[in-house]
Each structure stands twice: as structure tokens, then as C-alpha cells.
């Protein structure tokens, strides 16, 4: 479904800060895969996601989505195929706009926007229904500005927005890292629910190794801009956090996980 071939990205080339963040990376994602991505700081997890959706261009390599090379397309043209949730809960929504308006913006992701009314009456019903599935009581707050919502609520709404029109690939960039443990759990469960209900393909970067084991059908570990461990199915289900730590020690070049990732 998505094939990444020899992808390379260097930040600040030619300066003292030069850093090769993605180094000849190869990855094949099949339709229906729910892949969790772990790795130390600077391993290139977020950069890989950003390269897939085109926040910045790759230096070399190919990204092939459903048979089409997309590595040279600008970000806004790729957006029709990708749903994204960012680490920062503020980044996925427009604070000064109503909940319904935000959903209406997302409902039109990747479509041509014209001069018809920005939100139609019949859409409101759909949004109310979808918000009700979050179980956060947001279905009665369609006309509230998003800025009035808490971080966890905003992140749940962003998740809903990213999946309102089933994307070919859902990209979750540590989307629960900025939330308290309780809220993070709720949002993670919602993520599971939405992905399985809509049978989505997803990539989820996480710092939480237990979550990386508990969720999804495949796990990849990254280090120095490449994938050092790739496991799926029953073998993945059997993993324990200690196993991952040991594997990381064996396979990585040092650098190491921090305590915060053990949670």
C-alpha cells in the first residue's frame, strides 16, 4: 500500500549542525497494518512521518502510495490521502473556530473548496453522531469554540477530524504524549476503536513501550534514521517491555531509552 525506498533526509546540510536524520530507510506497509513506531530521541520517527506527508521534501529515495510516487508532491496535495494527529493538541485544530466548523474543514480534506456554504445543516447531524462515539459529551458543544476544550478533548476531536473521511494512511505522531495518563489511555482506546471500525492503515509513533506492544499488529524500532527491528503478529503480542529494552541494547548503537519511555 505504501512503499518507502531508500529514503534519505539530512538537516542543515553543509553546516556544523549537519545531521543525517533518515538514512536509506526502507519500509513496506500493507493495507490494514497498524504499526507502532518506537525509538530513542533523534531516531527519525517524527521525521519519517513528516517526510511521508510532505512537511518537508526528502533528499533522496521514493515514497510510493498505492502505486503512485508522491515524494515530489507538495504537502497540501498529499493531504487527501493522509489523516494526521500531532503531538501538540493545539496543532490539529483552529482554536477560534467552532467545533462544528473545525469538523467541516476536516470533512473537506483534500477536496476542492468553493463558494458554497462552509458547513451544511445536514452535516451537523453527522458530526453530532460522530462526536457522540467519542463518549466525551462533546456532541452538545458543536457551537463552542475549540479553544474552550481541554487538551485531551482537542486531541480526541483531532483524531475524529483525521478519520472523518477514511484516509489511506493515518499518521499519529506521539499523539498522547502531551496528555495526562488517564486521558492518554482514553485517546489511545479511541484510536484503537476508530482504526478497527474503519479498518484503517495506521502508523503510530509512541514513547510508551507498553502501548507500542498493546496496540497494533506490527511494531518497528528505529535508530539513527533506519529500522533496526520489525516484528508482527503473535511474535509481537508476546513481547514484553524488558524484551524491547534488551533488543534495543543489542541492536542500537547506543544513545539509549530514557526512563520516561518505560511508563
Amino acid at each position: 500500500m505504501l512503499i518507502i525506498e531508500n529514503l534519505t533526509k539530512t538537516f542543515d546540510p553543509g553546516t556544523v549542525n549537519e545531521k543525517k536524520v533518515i538514512d536509506r530507510l526502507n519500509l513496506q506497509i500493507s493495507a490494514g497494518d497498524f504499526i507502532t513506531v518506537i525509538g530513542g530521541n533523534g531516531a527519525g520517527k517524527s521525521t519519517m512521518l513528516n517526510l511521508i506527508c510532505g512537511v518537508y521534501p526528502a533528499d533522496g529515495g521514493k515514497i510510493i502510495l498505492a502505486g503512485n510516487e508522491i515524494q515530489d508532491m507538495p504537502e497540501h496535495k498529499r493531504a487527501k490521502d493522509f489523516g494526521r494527529v500531532f503531538q501538540d493538541p493545539l496543532m490539529g485544530t483552529a482554536a477560534n473556530m467552532q467545533l462544528a466548523e473545525n469538523l467541516a474543514l476536516a470533512f473537506r480534506r483534500g477536496k476542492r473548496r468553493g463558494l458554497s456554504w462552509g458547513i451544511l445543516e445536514e452535516e451537523r447531524e453527522l458530526y453530532q453522531k460522530r462526536l457522540a462515539t467519542l463518549g466525551l459529551g462533546l456532541e452538545d458543544r458543536l457551537n463552542d469554540k475549540i479553544g474552550l476544550l481541554s487538551g485531551g478533548q482537542r486531541q480526541a476531536v483531532t483524531l475524529l477530524m483525521a478519520t472523518l473521511n477514511a484516509p489511506k494512511l493515518l499518521l499519529l505522531d506521539e499523539h498522547t504524549a502531551a496528555l495526562d495518563p488517564n486521558t492518554a489511555e482514553i485517546v489511545l482506546n479511541l484510536t484503537d476503536k476508530i482504526i478497527s471500525e474503519q479498518n484503517l492503515t495506521a502508523l503510530m509513533v509512541t514513547h510508551n513501550m507498553q502501548a507500542a506492544i498493546d496496540h497494533g499488529n506490527r511494531l518497528i524500532m528505529m535508530d539513527k534514521g533506519n529500522i533496526i527491528y520489525d516484528v508482527r503478529g503473535p511474535e509481537k503480542q508476546k513481547l514484553k517491555v524488558e524484551d524491547l529494552l534488551r533488543l534495543f541494547q543489542e541492536l542500537s548503537s547506543g544513545g539509549g531509552f530514557s526512563d520516561s519511555m518505560l511508563g
Partner: peptide, 22 residues
């Protein structure tokens, strides 16, 4: 309108607008 809404969203959050394909 749809165009007007996305302009207002641009003033709020450019990254989001690009992620939504505009």
C-alpha cells in the same frame, strides 16, 4: 463559505490547514 472558512483557519493554524489539503 468553504474558501472563507479555510482562510479563517489559516489565521488560526497554518499547519492544520496544510494537513487538510489547502
Amino acid at each position: 463559505t468553504e474558501i472563507g472558512s479555510i482562510i479563517r483557519a489559516t489565521g488560526n493554524n497554518e499547519a492544520m490547514v496544510r494537513a487538510l489539503g489547502q
